[in-house]
Computed example of a mutant assay.
Amino acid sequence: MTLPEAVLGVMFIGLIAYALFGGADFGAGIWDLLAGGTRRGERRRALIEHSLGPVWEANHVWLILVLVVLWTGFSGAFASVASTLYIPLTIAAFGMIARGAAFAFRKSVTTPGMRRFFGASFALSSLITPYFLGSVVGGVASGRVPPGIAAGDVITSWLNLTSVLGGVLAVLVCGYLAAVFLCADARRAGQLDLAAEFRVRALGAAAATGAAGLGGIFVLRADAPLLFAGLTGRAMVVVLLSALAGLTAIGLLLLRRYVLARVASALAVAAILVGWAVAQYPYILVPELTIADAAAGTSTLMAMLVSLVVGGAILVPALGYLYSLFQRAHPSVPASTPTGGADRTERGRHRGRPGRG
């Protein structure tokens, strides 16, 4: 492995972390949108706020890491992406700002109208932002971002079939990850009816994601032949691993093994991202700019790699500890649940079997 590949590999680990943690964060906002009316959706929104509230800002650390490494270590590629895809990137940035502001403000307002306004802003931003981030990935992966300042078409680079596929898949994957994560959080809070409800939503999101992925095969074959060739060639093993992990996660959801389902779901998402990287290797911008050609000087890359290793040794354990703290039950989430049919079924399945995931 060369020095540029090592630095880019660390950046890609940050991209995977953002897809998993930030993706679940955005997905929780999507389920907030679909939670129901003010009174009917109150318990669902309380669970969602408890699950993402303590860590939602921390998730963007991974996005900052990706941008800083790309900007510093591969500045030519960064400039090309930022100048050609500035429209979807700007919309995504405004979506993040609106989402963060709405999430904070809706806790401080008391009037029902303003709470609904900020709640709708938070939820809609959670839907829009991952879509446009996915469209950016689609534009890069399909080879529509050539090297140079605004060298690509600023419209068709993200308004194309592959970018639409990337945006749709990003939204579906975010919703799926969030539903899987919320299953375990709901059970931990004693809200077994909500665990059963999010289990159904996770299975539905998994089915929709699988259908979109299968349909995407034909889209990539027609619209992004180089990416299609890579995914069905050297990256095929990784793609099959992703599919196997996804099927395993569905089986674990059916068995109500929610913690293990989290692990399998994360592996499925991570594998498909790795498959994308393998498919377009050694290019950072298909089909012209290689990783070696885009890389900064050796001294810059070495300083960056040392900084990333030292910073990671501090950051990763700290974030791990933060996440673990809020995986425990919290008094702000009511432990009592209504005695609905789903709740009784869930309790009956686990009576006398403590400690299952």
Rank of each mutant, 00 (worst) to 15 (best):
A268R: 01
P225D: 05
G167P: 09
A270H: 02
E346W: 11
P88Q: 13
H60Y: 14
A318K: 14
V55S: 03
G297I: 08
G340Y: 03
R256S: 07
V309C: 00
P331H: 14
G213K: 05
S121E: 08
A19T: 12
I97S: 14
G275M: 04
F122W: 08
T90V: 13
L285P: 02
T2W: 03
F103L: 14
G320M: 07
G320N: 14
L161N: 04
G352I: 09
A206N: 04
S51C: 05
R43K: 10
A245C: 12
L226A: 08
A245K: 07
P225K: 03
G119V: 13
F74P: 00
S242T: 05
I91C: 15
Y323A: 08
R347S: 00
R353V: 02
P4N: 05
L161C: 08
L194P: 14
L124G: 11
A271L: 05
L192I: 12
T337S: 13
G190H: 10
E42L: 12
G143T: 06
A24Y: 11
M1V: 13
P338H: 15
V66S: 15
V154M: 12
V154K: 14
R347V: 02
A184R: 13
M1F: 11
A178Y: 09
R351S: 06
R353S: 09
A296S: 11
L89G: 13
A28R: 05
F218L: 06
W62M: 14
R262L: 01
A264C: 10
A249M: 12
M114C: 05
T248H: 05
T290E: 05
V238S: 00
S80R: 14
G166W: 07
G148M: 09
G152D: 01
A329L: 03
A222R: 05
L255D: 01
P54N: 11
